[in-house]
Design a binder for these strands. Structure first.
Lengths: 122, 122
DNA sequence: ATAATATATGAACAGTTATTCATACGATAA
DNA sequence: TTATCGTATGAATAACTGTTCATATATTAT
């Protein structure tokens, strides 16, 4: 007799650990939450943005400063600041024609620190 | 007279804040470090991987368990576990044909927690 | 040996994303 | 007003990434 295809016959039913699976299923955050969490980390997953965040960690800076500092075009910086703004990771204030950006809150610092600890070890 | 193009004339030299830029430049981590950090966060920036990590946070699980739990193909899970393994975020042990995965260290938990705090606020 | 099962992996395709370029917007100064 | 400067943004392109499919590997059982 043919094995039934299509469905997830990744392994025989007998071998799996349904108790553990069920228990964990009940403990997992909602899919939407996990999706949002991934979206947040995606922001940190770009070296340009990480560098911007590290720079702002030291000092409030205008778009132009950031571009000079990083040797990246003003446009690229602006685009990335837009992303960071949308995720509420940075805030800004206007002073004439200049706009100064700074970190929005301490979670940014914590997240960066934890990540740094991981890559620095070993 | 023509303005010189090509270079980053994102803003006139007089308007920028060279003191702040220079100070921050000296304080920034090395480019390579920032790149590695972004690479790490990139791993967390995918909902499938985040979900796997959250599942492993509760219990050691085999590939098949994870696939069933998440309703994702075994192949997709395997591919992602490969990524997580490469970044030393998960470890594994073999038991016959089955391979059990678990979290590699506590940084994973810290990073996830900090991210979760950020999205839960407001 | 062969078969069956759990996992891994290469190739291909679709979807996403970061940069560049050109241009627009907004504020200040003349 | 017009000009200038700092910033923002839409479109286009190139590079990257996650899934699927097919298949390979590794372990155990017969």
């Amino acid at each position: 007799m043919e094995q039934e295809r299509d469905q997830d016959l990744c392994c025989a039913v007998t071998q799996v650990h349904p108790d553990a699976v069920e228990r964990v299923r009940g403990l997992l955050p909602r899919d939407e939450t996990l999706y949002d969490l991934a979206e947040l980390f995606k922001i940190f997953g770009d070296s340009t943005r990480v560098k911007i965040l590290y720079a702002l960690l030291e000092s409030e800076l205008c778009v132009c400063d950031i571009a000079k500092l990083m040797d990246v075009s003003q446009s690229a910086v602006s685009h990335q600041l837009r992303v960071l703004k949308a995720s509420k990771l940075v805030k800004f204030r206007r002073e004439g024609k200049t706009i100064f950006y700074s970190l929005a809150d301490d979670h940014v610092v914590s997240i960066l620190s934890q990540g740094m600890e991981h890559i620095e070890e070993e």
